[in-house]
Amino acid sequence: MKNLTVSDVMTRGVLTARAGTPVKELARIMVEHRVSALPVLDDDDRLIGVVSEADVILKQGHQIPRRPHWWEPMEQRDAVRRAAGDTAGRLMSTAPVSIATGSSIPQAARLMADHGVKRLPVVDAQDRVVGVVSRHDLLKAFVRSDDDIRADVLGEVFVHLLWDDPTEVDVQVRDGVVEMVGTVDRRSTAEAAERLVRRLDGVVDVVANLGFRVDDRGLARRR
């Protein structure tokens, strides 16, 4: 069963910055191309940081240079230090959150939620940036027709994965909600069917009313 990965939905041809890119140039790129952040690359095109519009605005808000005070919270001291810089390398966040090309859409969504970011640089095995995935890109997984989802339920889940006769199960899909009614051979098949269908791209919810002829859960315990 093939699901969409980050590389399927990401934006390629990424706008990037170098450590030495001046603040004025960063602001120009962000304004002209309407992007909120830029991956910062080293000389080998590897990801070393991310500079955001918030970082550039931070510079604007600290026009009077000063040294950070020891009693200030660590985040505030870091903000003061970075605001003193005039290049991407001085302004950027040096612990960028990125994601690998083969990662799943749910993995990307969880990473964005956990770190409170709207987009993620996508990196290959050598940590080189090959794209950017945004919240908007993740929505593409849900833009699938009900007919396509139903075809995957019958063909991918029941025939190819479960090796079960799909003619004994009635599958209806409405606005991404899959309803399955019918009978399968084993209890384990009924339980697996619901799990697998939930993993299909575009599925919003599953209503499973599947009966079974053999309760193989008890057989497995006795073995």
Rank of each mutant, 00 (worst) to 15 (best):
P106H: 10
P68V: 02
R144E: 03
G49K: 02
Q126W: 03
T183D: 10
D8P: 06
A220H: 13
V171T: 12
D216W: 10
D127P: 01
R128P: 01
S134Q: 04
L58N: 15
V51Q: 04
A54H: 10
M1K: 09
G131P: 01
P166N: 06
Q172V: 15
D114N: 13
D114S: 14
T21E: 01
L162H: 06
V56E: 09
H33L: 01
A151C: 03
D78W: 00
D86V: 14
S7C: 04
P121V: 08
A54I: 05
Q107E: 15
L91W: 05
A220Y: 07
M10F: 00
V178Q: 09
V207D: 14
E179G: 02
D201C: 10
V31F: 10
D147C: 03
E168T: 15
S36R: 15
G89T: 08
D205L: 01
R150C: 06
L58D: 08
G218S: 13
V159A: 02
M92E: 05
L47G: 06
R82A: 12
D205T: 00
R81M: 11
A192Y: 00
W163P: 03
P106T: 07
P96M: 10
R82M: 02
I105M: 02
R198H: 11
S7W: 05
E72Q: 15
D42G: 06
